Computed example of a mutant assay.
Amino acid sequence: MNWVQHKIYLYNVTFGLYMLDWWERCTFNILVFVLMCFVIRYATQFIKR
């Protein structure tokens, strides 16, 4: 198991994604990605002020 596979495994185990179906895991990852985009956008706008 290389470093990237290990990090993906830890992510799945930490958030309990290992027990979800592939489509549920994909939906969760999309929601996390969208949330992180909003946070980064807000943080950059906050820093520019």
Rank of each mutant, 00 (worst) to 15 (best):
F38E: 07
W3H: 07
H6V: 04
V4P: 04
N2P: 07
M1F: 08
L10M: 09
W22D: 13
K48N: 07
L10E: 04
W22E: 12
I30E: 00
L20I: 05
N2S: 13
K7S: 01
Y9D: 10
T14S: 13
R25E: 03
V32L: 03
H6L: 14
I30H: 01
L17I: 11
V13K: 15
C26F: 13
C37E: 12
K7V: 02
K7M: 06
L10C: 10
V13W: 13
G16Q: 01
C37T: 04
K7R: 07
I30G: 01
W22R: 13
C26T: 14
W22Y: 10
D21R: 08
L31E: 04
M36G: 02
V39D: 07
V13G: 04
E24F: 03
Y42V: 05
F28V: 13
E24N: 10
N12C: 11
W3K: 09
V34L: 09
V39E: 01
K48V: 10
H6C: 04
Q5D: 15
G16R: 00
V34K: 00
L31H: 06
K7Y: 02
D21W: 02
N29P: 01
Y18L: 08
K7W: 04
K48W: 11
R25M: 03
L20G: 04
K48H: 09
Q5T: 10
N29V: 01
T14Q: 13
I47K: 09
T14H: 11
Y42L: 12
Y11S: 04
K48R: 15
W22V: 12
I8H: 01
R25K: 10
T44H: 08
L20T: 07
R49S: 05
M19T: 14
L31W: 12
L20K: 14
H6K: 13
M19C: 13
F28Q: 03
F33A: 05
F46Q: 13
Y42P: 01
V13C: 08
M1A: 13
A43T: 08
T14M: 11
T27L: 15
F38T: 02
C37K: 05
F46S: 03
I47M: 10
R25T: 04
Y18E: 15
C26V: 12
N2Y: 05
Q45M: 12
R25P: 00
Y9Q: 14
K48P: 02
F33K: 03
I47Q: 09
M19Y: 09
F15C: 03
K48Q: 15
N29A: 06
Q45I: 10
F38S: 01
Y9F: 12
I8R: 11
N2H: 09
F38D: 06
I40Y: 04
F15S: 05
L35D: 04
Y9R: 08
C37A: 11
I8M: 15
I47H: 05
V39L: 14
F33G: 03
R25C: 01
V13E: 15
A43L: 15
L20Q: 14
Y9C: 05
V39W: 02
L35Y: 08
W3E: 13
C26P: 02
V34I: 07
H6W: 08
F28A: 10
Y11F: 15
E24V: 08
